Amino acid sequence: MQRYRTQYTERNKPGLEGAIEIEMEVVSDYLHVGSGVYDIEILKPLDNIQQLVESALKGSIPDLSGYFSPVTHEMAKYGEKLVIPGSTVKGLVRTRLELSIPNSCYVVSRNSNSSSEVYKRIFRNPRHKYSDKFPEQVCPVCDLLGNAGLASRVSFSDLVMTQGKAEFVNVYNEYYESAVKGSKFRGKVLYHSFNNVDLGMLLYGMGFRIKGGKLEGKIMLMGRFKYSDRRFGRVRFSLVKGEYVNALNEFIKKYNPLDFNEEW
């Protein structure tokens, strides 16, 4: 079984440096990428709080529907504008590359108590994946995006909304602030010590494929509810300027990556 490795010393050689300006469009009805901030409003005083607590301790669940507003979950913001955190974009890219490049690392940080049938149907079970520590060598994905002991050669800025709007959408009786279909976000990806294959790998991880001799972004899944609610989570990346067909071709020729249809 062939295993791809990149020596640590190779990444220190001089190479390409630059920035790619990207745009991300929401192509589903909604996109929610949580900020971790949520809100709930007290609608009326809990004058009988002691009675309610005693009732709950006795096993009787009190009806609090009139006391609190539905929970609302916010998206991240920069000033008044919605943003998609750069860490979210980097996580998307890493996941797709780990699943696509045969015998790359498949980093699992925790055990899951549940699994999504949609996820398994789209990506299937990764074959020949492992998660080892490499004191002298590192897989191509870690070499590009870093790991616990290795700095990333790529930096993702937050993507800032430049077009569109957000609405609060009711999902399971809670409200999620969501960018609506057609909303667009822009940001930059900075890279250094790259060669053409590295550049092609980065583009492949963002969903770019070659169609008619040009780069075209495929539909990718991002954010909350992407595997459970068809209204959510579909995005597509495009380049604001620049063309990198040769770089993507070189990456595909070297690694023969897998591809997945995420439009479930």
Rank of each mutant, 00 (worst) to 15 (best):
F134C: 11
N261Q: 07
V118H: 14
S183W: 06
K218D: 07
T162I: 14
G18I: 07
I252N: 08
C105R: 05
L190D: 07
F168M: 06
R5K: 08
K226H: 04
V197K: 04
V240C: 14
I84W: 10
F208Q: 03
E23V: 02
S131H: 15
S116F: 09
S152V: 14
E21R: 07
P45I: 12
G15S: 04
V171G: 02
L150M: 14
A56T: 04
Q163M: 10
Q137C: 15
V160W: 14
M1G: 06
K133T: 11
R209F: 07
G36L: 11
R230N: 10
I49A: 03
Y8T: 06
E216A: 10
E17V: 12
K90I: 15
L202R: 03
F194V: 05
N196D: 10
P62M: 07
S238A: 11
N249D: 04
R94M: 00
T162G: 07
K120L: 08
P135C: 06
V93S: 14
L258E: 14
E21F: 01
R224S: 13
K226L: 03
K90F: 14
S157E: 13
Q51R: 00
A76F: 07
V108L: 13
Y172F: 10
G187A: 12
R209L: 05
Y204R: 13
N170K: 09
G91I: 04
E177Q: 02
M201C: 01
K211L: 06
Y4E: 12
E174R: 09
G86F: 13
K129S: 09
L46M: 12
P62W: 04
V118M: 15
Y191E: 05
S193Q: 13
V154I: 12
I101G: 09
D198S: 03
N173S: 00
K77V: 13
L144A: 14
K214G: 04
I210W: 10
A166C: 08
V154T: 09
E117A: 12
M1E: 05
T6A: 03
K13M: 01
I252D: 12
S35E: 01
Q51K: 05
Y78A: 07
E25R: 14
W264D: 15
N170C: 00
A56I: 11
I101R: 03
G205F: 11
A151R: 15
V37R: 11
V26E: 04
V197L: 02
E74C: 06
L202I: 04
V53D: 01
E216F: 00
V108G: 02
P102L: 02
F134I: 03
E21K: 01
M206N: 01
V235K: 03
V154Y: 08
L190C: 05
G91S: 05
E98K: 02
N113E: 13
L221K: 09
A56W: 10
N256C: 10
Q51N: 03
Y130V: 02
F123P: 07
L99I: 00
G217C: 12
A151H: 13
